[in-house]
Design a protein around this nucleic acid. Structure first.
Lengths: 229, 229
DNA sequence: CTTCCCAAAATTGGATCCAAGAAGATTTGC
DNA sequence: GCAAATCTTCTTGGATCCAATTTTGGGAAG
């Protein structure tokens, strides 16, 4: 899609390696706090240590992993307050995206948003990979409509800074969270239709804050249980 | 200052190398659009190509340079619309920082802000390195008062994404810009004293937008003259 | 004179090598 | 028997090596 996009392409192998490692962290295959040994990753991914090292450097810049000088890389263990900080920022940015989207959205765009959220309607089927993708899609659609690449990029970077993101968790934990998520999306859709920028902003902000709060609570529970097995 | 900060320390050499390259780009010693040859950088900085490559990878992730697969790295040439996009995002974030700062600022903090801006008062002396530092300090002080590390980090990343930033330019171009910059800071200080969050937010947002507009215009003029210069 | 093609030089990218540092095990001293 | 020091092993970090791709310069053909 992007012809003149500011996306820096870099080397194919390094990017693939970074994406592979990130995917394994995001999926939980590599757990939070785990050590990332370069030789092991290189062997698993079928490359040498060089691209692995550069990939780790990329992930480190994004904040997903932490590299201590002579002791290697570990998957970062975010503190709940870090999640709340990040999601306060994200809420502000998603709010801005909504304000921009109100001015730019078309009938087709609104329809696509509605269709996407229908995939999240509770009761149909248990959450699966498709619903996670739909949840992501709902937000990225708004970012596309907002038409500010930097804005979309910053939000994506915040989302990718934590080894578990909202889409992967909120839909699985409590069924209640799933219902809330759907309902909040519906409120955003309704607000978009009123074309009231402030209303859309508030709806989106409260949605993001509550999602972030759930993610922060998940980390709190995790840190409480990780010591007793 | 940061003891438990989420700053990933990484390797010393690579970080120093990245900082050195970034400094040379920011200062203009390495011009916009210039090729960055690994061997040359390695020789200049007195290290081997390995840390240079990892440093370039870091800078690439930040968006300051662009790496095309088998053709090396160049200092990115930002389009004016990219600057405007980024500064719309930055304005929103600096606005959020102000809203948070209003609730948290102390008498001492306000005094430090005032003192910092006094260094920018026009008429005293021509802009120098100290005034650039003071301009940066005025904003980072607010970020510190705001007390959200992620917020400060995202703003810093946006600021470092362009090979020329506002502090380095606005103070040097037109004397009028310098006056405006000082006056806008004074308005922000006054707004902070009123403790009206919305007012402070508006003042800061319009300040950042106008600064970004000046930066964008600088890039426009640059792209207009680069072909006949 | 321009354009296309081919070859040589230069540069990047991946792999390997070696040193330096840290963690862990073993041994030694008390 | 316990603690401290040392030695071994493992892992990272930097340097070097080699292959692959790009670029550039020269030459030949149109």
């Amino acid at each position: 899609m992007d012809t003149a996009s500011p996306a820096t392409s870099s080397s194919a192998l390094v990017d693939e390696t970074a994406a592979a490692i990130r995917a394994r962290i995001m999926s939980g295959e590599i757990p939070i706090g785990a050590q990332l040994r370069q030789a092991e990753l290189a062997k698993t991914l079928g490359v040498s240590r060089t691209p692995v090292r550069e990939a780790l450097r990329q992930l480190q810049t994004g904040g997903l992993i932490e590299v201590v000088p002579n002791r290697g890389a570990v998957v970062r263990v975010p503190a709940p307050w870090e999640v709340r900080e990040a999601y306060e920022v994200r809420a502000e940015l998603e709010g801005l995206a909504c304000v921009r989207a109100v001015r730019r959205i078309t009938r087709d765009g609104l329809g696509e948003l509605r269709a996407t959220n229908e995939l999240l309607r509770p009761g149909d089927a248990p959450p699966n990979a498709a619903s996670h993708a739909a949840n992501d899609r709902f937000h990225t659609l708004i970012h596309e409509i907002a038409g500010n690449e930097r804005l979309a990029r910053v939000i994506r970077e915040i989302n990718e800074a934590f080894p578990r993101n909202v889409s992967a968790l909120v839909l699985q934990e409590h069924p209640r969270h799933r219902d809330d998520n759907f309902a909040e999306h519906e409120r955003i859709l309704a607000a978009l239709q009123t074309e009231d920028p402030d209303l859309v902003r508030r709806e989106m902000q409260s949605h993001v804050i509550s999602a972030g709060e759930q993610l922060a609570r998940w980390y709190e529970r995790r840190s409480a249980t990780v010591f007793r097995g």
